[in-house]
Design a protein around this nucleic acid. Sequence first.
DNA 1: TTGAAAGCGCTAACAG
DNA 2: CTGTTAGCGCTTTCAA
Lengths: 337, 337
Amino acid sequence: MAATIKDVARLAEVSISTVSRVINDSKPVSPEVRRRVLDAIEELGYKPNEVARSLVTKKSNLIGIIVTDIGNSYIAQMVRGIEEVGRMYNYDIILSSSYGDVETEKKFAELLRSKQVEGIILISEIINEEVIEQIKSFKIPFMYLNKYYNNLNLPSVSIDHYEAGLRMTNYIIELGHKNILYLTAKDDEETSLEKYKIDGYKEAVKGLEQGKEFIYSANGFSIEDGYEAGDSVVNIIRENNITAVFCCQDEIAIGLVNYCYDNNIKVPEDISICGYGDTKIASIYRPKLTTIKEPYYDIGAVAIRKIIKQLDDDEVEKANTYLPIQIMKRESCKKIQ
Amino acid sequence: MAATIKDVARLAEVSISTVSRVINDSKPVSPEVRRRVLDAIEELGYKPNEVARSLVTKKSNLIGIIVTDIGNSYIAQMVRGIEEVGRMYNYDIILSSSYGDVETEKKFAELLRSKQVEGIILISEIINEEVIEQIKSFKIPFMYLNKYYNNLNLPSVSIDHYEAGLRMTNYIIELGHKNILYLTAKDDEETSLEKYKIDGYKEAVKGLEQGKEFIYSANGFSIEDGYEAGDSVVNIIRENNITAVFCCQDEIAIGLVNYCYDNNIKVPEDISICGYGDTKIASIYRPKLTTIKEPYYDIGAVAIRKIIKQLDDDEVEKANTYLPIQIMKRESCKKIQ
DNA sequence: TTGAAAGCGCTAACAG
DNA sequence: CTGTTAGCGCTTTCAA
């Protein structure tokens, strides 16, 4: 059995309050007594029981994170950011994966609450008003991170997708491309972030002489979806003299590059392809993927920072925070002419 | 303020003990009273405070995980396994990343203890006897997972690296390769797992007519290290008529494939390359990487399963558990002749 | 079957 | 500066 505050008090021949005072530095304690207490702590290898502490202080120093799947590298990056900043402020994180299931998300939310977490960060890939309402009802700081959809009523951290779409398209135009295909993903959701990116793309394309828009939808956001879109994309490219494809996600871009590899189409010699996100693989892959950097680590870091701020100041910041974006100019897009 | 057991008791007009009995199903309660309690719970949206519960039961239902970096995909996979199985047994996980720093690992270990975790899983990439001794002193179930080094005195879960080295080499031989280079990583550590893999490789090579061993060391286990080894590897290959390179880690293999890509050497046409681990990227990359599957998810799953078993039965299983391996036959190694 | 009471390990008035 | 005491929310004897 681990030593308790009582054991320390007994050994140091003081009251437990005095021990509490020295471990918390909460009230003055005479040097001599402090010494005795410290010695006793040392001798017993005493560490305060945080559970007991939490019960009385009502501070668990725990932040709950519900993720879709920690195996997704971008989510892992966000969690890293959350964890590292949390640590700086003495918060631990307790992690649960929902694999996209709504019921699981709800169950975890309850569970986190019963564990007395002080804040919750939900990293989701679906939209689930029910879970959101539930977590909101807990009345604890809550942050919603979603790479695909937004919920404007909820505090979040992201990049400005319109600007990202605009700047990336402009970069491709600077490279000399005249006909650019935007490869989005099929999506009936009102709240999809695709519309911002597409608006940015359209705005940039307007600057072109011809200014023609080409938009095609893959069936989803995965590598496989990108691969499967390959046939159609190649047709569109051929028919319209397209030289560059702007993919709405790195995964789709990778899938498309894989399709090209398997079909003897050279990237970027035959076609330039760029992605969106700058997930880990983008820089490892050959050709290295030109893409928009979504700063996942920073998104996580800022998200928890906002939670902690709220915990400290008690002021809720409703606004979305936008982080700076960056175009990662790599190999998969080449200059034309 | 969330409702407490007292609120429920008051509303249901019973004592708190009765409420406790119905939520825990610990003692018989008359149907009528049970109804009243359940109704009150429903009405108040009551959820037991797990912190208070832990304090009295001494069960936190928390497992602590210390990882090097959750951003490593293989570690994320392990964590997934841990988390999912843990969940089945009602355990939550509390996660901390050390980024390989010994002092941080020690600090986290203490922290986890003070949070009253019931078991600790350390996923490390270094060897740190000090931390190990410290965690052992906590007298709680402890599992040590390390992809690079082993500690034979500690319970762990892994594959049989000798067998893996043997079987992979044999597979390459079956493909018709006569001269195979094993690309290891520089490593002075006694406990490196490389020696098992190399022994397996050597054993298999003995079966060859010439039976010549070729071993070269990269400077480390990273993609960059694999890339940097490229020049030397290519020299060795040319001088010795080598047709296949067995890399001790997927990362090194990817680095080497990247080097080949950048230097116009075709994989697998000019040289066959295989990896070790089957990290996520191995199957995404083109050419798809032939490799040994280390079942990371399962390793995590089994590790926590063992911890939970220990918690239940109180019997410590010292032995290492070996999981089945699998050769992932993909594109980066081709048949010769 | 139910309630009263003790106590888990700790913090925080309150008195002295 | 120090000790006594109450109590955080819950489980678990012990009696009734």
